[in-house]
Design a protein around this nucleic acid. Structure first.
Lengths: 154, 154
DNA sequence: CAGGTTACCTCACTCAGTGAGCTATTCTCG
DNA sequence: CGAGAATAGCTCACTGAGTGAGGTAACCTG
């Protein structure tokens, strides 16, 4: 049934195996996001937004509504709604941008950081533990691989 | 600002770096799903469902509505709706299970396989190419790492 | 074969996300 | 400089995806 879709090329099959593991990670990550959303009463989109915003903060990049919209793959209106929800929940502050009068600067509150840490902390710890099994050279290898995959997806 | 959240532990920082790449991959994958959904007129959930179903087929596992609901992290009712949408679009057939009269067997149609291949094919090819740069031993290393991360998320 | 469980479904409803269209600020170039 | 175009973000009205409540049929267990 349906040959050709997965050709019997052993090299390719081995590579596909790896790709599947990655996809499994994506799936599990999404489920974790969903579970976090359910326990906190937030929505999955809100959680995804928070994660992106925390990332931006860590990278010390200025997060704006339009930037967030792009990260979420949503329209600016939907993103406005997300921001309002997070603001109402006290997880986000909307400040004025100093460089552009039209734009806003999104600042996650301490409560959001705590909340995220509480849930994703243990999860992150386990992921980090999995990583620290590898020695520096191995980590470097995996890192360059993941970067390549990331580029392939971009 | 907010020390303690990212402690100045160089080992941990290096590992976090890797975790971030993984999360970047998750984000880009989600955006790709969204783009595919937009171009095909499907919904992101429908696409996620299709991907899961194709996976099940590849693994030769029997896909049922309840199994799918679990994969998507959604209620059975919402999953019923997804199945109906995919069925109406001709991407899915709902067959009777032979072992359990209550259950249904979900069978993706050729049109869905083609559609998926058309969009995800090039993307998958690039991911596979990134993988094939590695030699077998390196692939094995990455694979065991990804498996460990997957377990950490489960 | 009665009582309980499981798999899936329908119905009524809510609210997240979209399209249309607005205001205010910034950029561009004669 | 100043008019026109572009950009950032917003409100409003609406659609439809997902949920909770609750139903039916098939299976399991004593």
């Amino acid at each position: 049934m349906r040959e050709g879709v997965t050709p019997a090329d052993p090299e390719r099959a081995a590579a596909l195996e790896l790709v599947h593991r990655l996809r499994d990670i994506v799936l599990r990550w999404e489920l974790a996001i969903g579970e976090f959303a359910r326990t906190t009463g937030l929505h999955t989109t809100d959680v995804r937004a928070l994660v992106s915003l925390l990332d931006a903060e860590r990278a010390e990049a200025e997060a704006t509504p339009s930037w967030l919209a792009q990260q979420l793959g949503m329209t600016s209106q939907a993103t406005t709604a997300v921001i309002h929800r997070l603001e109402a929940a006290g997880h986000l502050e909307r400040l004025r941008s100093r460089t552009d009068g039209r734009s806003a600067r999104l600042q996650v509150s301490d409560s959001a950081v705590d909340l995220g840490w509480q849930f994703f902390g243990p999860l992150l710890d386990r992921m980090i533990a999995s990583t620290q099994i590898l020695d520096p050279d191995q980590q470097k290898l995996v890192k360059s691989y993941l970067t390549a995959v990331s580029d392939a997806l971009g």
